[in-house]
């Protein structure tokens, strides 16, 4: 499993996220020794050094609070999800790097991808990116009423699956309500007579509690999908730390439902299937090109019934350890995606 919360040894490849990587990493991986050291160095030195465990004994709560503080500080540096920015800005970040990233970004631009919407690297970036893009595509659907209605019926059907696999209603109903509420706002004005627009959507996903509610709801849907059809997923699940095979239930409890655990292929496949929405992931790595065409490798996650609501697939940009959203608009001021 590739995850920003499990720091990998420094490779020879340049940091794929020159501006975002370090921030995201520090913001979420407070489990890593380096972060513990970082936090520990912020604490007053123990009066009696050398006693094993003494530092923890004195300061678990200080540590915890300092860790929270550090997270909050990092949080202020990058919103949970950002306004779209031109893809050319990403290209600029790689001008001094090796060629492959540059060529790949240029190829994406040549294919009509003009914008990038960044998600904070807090370990939930796949789910947050997907949740955002999932609602955004309804906002830009040709027939909003149809798109919203069909999406709501798909989400409502998930409640049964959640119940069937044994989740308590109290564990999901509030998150479901919050997610459906924002989707409803696309077609039904609120008490001030206003519908959801691009700004409102961004604001929703930048508000931690609302944004995290949506993330958690999608995690539960992912978990329920895997639990309801274990045979489809079992062979692909392993403990990212040890490489041992794992059962669906244990895997879901530890790596799907828990916060800050990044999605890997089985989760993406499960969620794609559960939401009946095609998801394309553009893999932007420094790896060499598979052929002379210098294309970026797109992996398509499809499932039966995808595209029911007639909206476009969701396209995410993956750089090792992190997901962002690829957009055909170069910024949020353009009201509609540049359709072909």
């Amino acid at each position: 499993m590739v995850s920003m919360s499990t720091p990998t040894p420094t490779s020879t490849a340049p940091d794929p996220t020159p501006t975002g990587g370090a921030v995201g990493h520090a913001a979420q991986s407070l489990t890593g020794q380096e972060d513990k050291d970082k936090v520990a160095s912020m604490l007053p030195r123990s009066e009696t050094p050398g006693v094993p465990g003494d530092e923890n004994q004195l300061s678990e709560h200080d540590l915890y609070q300092l860790a929270q503080q550090l997270k909050d500080e990092e949080a202020n540096k990058r919103p949970l999800i950002s306004s779209a920015e031109p893809l050319s800005a990403l290209r600029e970040e790689y001008t001094n790097g090796t060629g492959n990233f540059l060529e790949k970004i240029e190829w994406l631009m040549s294919q009509g991808w003009r914008g990038l919407r960044r998600t904070r690297g807090d370990g939930d970036c796949f789910y947050r990116s997907l949740a955002y893009a999932y609602v955004e595509r309804l906002l830009f659907a040709d027939d909003q009423d149809l798109a919203v209605a069909s999406t709501k019926s798909i989400l409502e059907a998930k409640l049964k699956v959640l119940e069937q696999v044994g989740f308590e209603k109290l564990a999901y109903e509030d998150f479901y309500d919050a997610f459906v509420e924002v989707i409803d706002l696309i077609v039904k004005p609120n008490q001030h007579g206003r519908k959801l627009d691009a700004n409102g959507l961004l604001e929703f996903f930048q508000t931690p509690e609302l944004s995290n509610s949506a993330v958690f709801f999608l995690k539960l849907v992912t978990s329920a999908q895997m639990r309801s059809e274990p045979a489809l997923y079992e062979g692909f699940l392993m403990n990212p730390d040890t490489g041992d095979p794992m059962g669906v239930k244990e895997f879901c409890e530890r790596f799907v439902e828990a916060a800050g655990k990044e999605a890997d292929d089985p989760m993406i496949s499960a969620l794609t299937s559960a939401l009946s929405v095609p998801v394309n992931v553009a893999y932007l790595s420094n790896a060499g090109f598979s052929d002379s065409s210098h294309k970026v490798n797109f992996v398509e996650f499809q499932s039966e019934g995808t595209g029911l609501s007639g909206a476009e697939p969701i396209t995410l940009l993956y750089r090792p350890g992190h997901y962002d959203i690829l957009e055909k608009r170069a910024d949020d001021l353009e009201t509609r995606p540049d359709r072909k």
């Binding site: 040890t242 916060a259 800050g260």
Partner: peptide, 11 residues
């Protein structure tokens, strides 16, 4: 939460 691991819980 999974990220908070002050005393090294078992995985």
């Amino acid at each position: 939460a999974p990220g908070d691991d002050p005393t090294g819980y078992e995985l």
